[in-house]
């Protein structure tokens, strides 16, 4: 209710400040929201913030029950978001596993499966069904997917280089193990 001021006077300064402040605040809020909606939060070339992934039993990383990105500095990290309810994920599951088996002996590349909003029993039967062996764990409270993207769809895969810089984003499923290999080789070559 703004027209409460004595009708003989103009608008007092405090009210003007309040009105303009409110209006500009609202506009700023919407502008920030718009900027965030229009571009993903993490872009290629950016340093990936650290996160910790709790691991499912049997899908640990060298015996560790959880793994932090910072522990993997010096290795190329492939972060794959998936869910058991996601049909396209099934299409790439075998390819990811094949690529993992190719790189596992070298130890230069680590695959991390991040299970996006899923239930554990279904996730486990999915992992068993596709014979997946690389470290996998749930995205608790969607903390990790929030780092990478705002409106996450699955599958999405992020490639991080040895110094923790995001190098490549794949939205949607891979069609062959060679496709995954090509990206990793390029990152390995660059150093």
């Amino acid at each position: 209710m703004t027209d409460t001021i004595s009708p003989k006077k103009g608008v007092p300064v405090w009210a003007q400040v309040l009105i303009w402040g409110g209006l500009l605040g609202l506009l700023a809020l919407v502008a920030i929201g718009l900027v965030r909606a229009q571009r993903p939060m993490l872009i290629v070339g950016a340093q990936v913030p650290d996160f910790t992934l709790p691991l499912y039993e049997g899908y640990d990383y060298g015996g560790a029950e959880e793994i932090a990105l910072s522990d993997l500095r010096g290795r190329v990290v492939v972060v794959n978001f998936w869910a058991s309810w996601c049909k396209p994920c099934e299409g790439e599951a075998a390819d990811l596993e094949a690529a993992w088996r190719l790189y596992q002996p070298g130890g230069e590349v680590v695959f991390l499966g991040v299970d996006y909003v899923d239930t554990e029993p279904d996730a486990r039967s999915y992992l068993a069904k596709f014979d997946i062996t690389y470290p996998n764990g749930p995205d608790m409270g969607t903390e990790i997917s929030r780092i990478f993207n705002r409106n996450l769809g699955v599958p999405e895969t992020y490639f991080i280089d040895r110094s923790g810089i995001l190098r490549y984003i794949k939205i949607g499923p891979f069609v062959s193990p060679e496709e995954i290999q090509a990206v990793i080789e390029a990152i390995l070559l660059e150093g």
């Binding site: 609202l26 809020l29 919407v30 920030i32 929201g33 965030r36 969607t142 929030r146």
Partner: peptide, 14 residues
């Protein structure tokens, strides 16, 4: 309507 926007900007949480 606006609050989820504010919350996401401030805390990163939806």
């Amino acid at each position: 309507v606006l609050f989820p926007l504010i919350s996401e900007i401030v805390t990163g949480q939806k």
